[in-house]
């Protein structure tokens, strides 16, 4: 899993760093060490579009001109057939069974999104029976 500095991530996505900070912080997902994991980078990339839409303002839909000629050609209705057989009598069928009310499944319980649950959050040390173990942290990728 690669970790990106928020300044590099913002530059890669064409944002200013404070824009990126605001996007993540408004979702309570900003890591205070400024290092973004892949999930947060994806979030930033997804939210970048909405951020730009919000900042660019809404675009009104053009109202069609009613007096203008339609661009489609109307299709004439077919004439009724002279010797056509009368339509069959409607068949009386039993009403379909009433379906049982469907109860949607409850949403899955997820831990609250925040600094503690982030990938870049400090690891919690849980001493086991064999004592503490040292974990190697993946180094930060050097900037290109």
């Amino acid at each position: 899993m690669t970790v990106k500095w928020i300044g590099d991530a913002a530059q890669e996505l064409g944002l200013s760093p404070l824009d990126a900070v605001e996007i993540l912080a408004s979702r309570q997902e900003y890591p205070m060490n400024g290092l973004l994991d892949e999930d947060r980078f994806k979030t930033l990339r997804l939210m970048r579009g909405s951020k730009r839409l919000e900042t660019s303002g809404s675009q009104p839909m053009p109202v069609p001109d009613r007096l203008a000629s339609p661009s489609t050609v109307p299709i004439p209705t077919p004439p009724p057939q002279a010797h056509a057989a009368p339509p069959p009598a409607p068949v009386v069928t039993a009403p379909p069974p009433v379906p049982e009310p469907f109860a949607p499944a409850p949403p899955p319980v997820r831990p609250p999104v925040g600094e503690r649950t982030s990938v870049t959050a400090p690891l919690q040390t849980i001493p086991g029976r064999e004592g503490e173990k040292t974990v190697i942290l993946s180094p930060i990728e050097p900037k290109e």
Partner: peptide, 26 residues
């Protein structure tokens, strides 16, 4: 000018702004 994870000033500035956005709102 080009901040990085070793730029303490940028880190503190971004953290303070993130806290302001979190507590006061976007």
């Amino acid at each position: 000018d080009v901040s990085g994870p070793h730029d303490l000033s940028a880190l503190l500035l971004y953290a303070s702004y993130a806290s302001v956005v979190e507590k006061i709102g976007p």
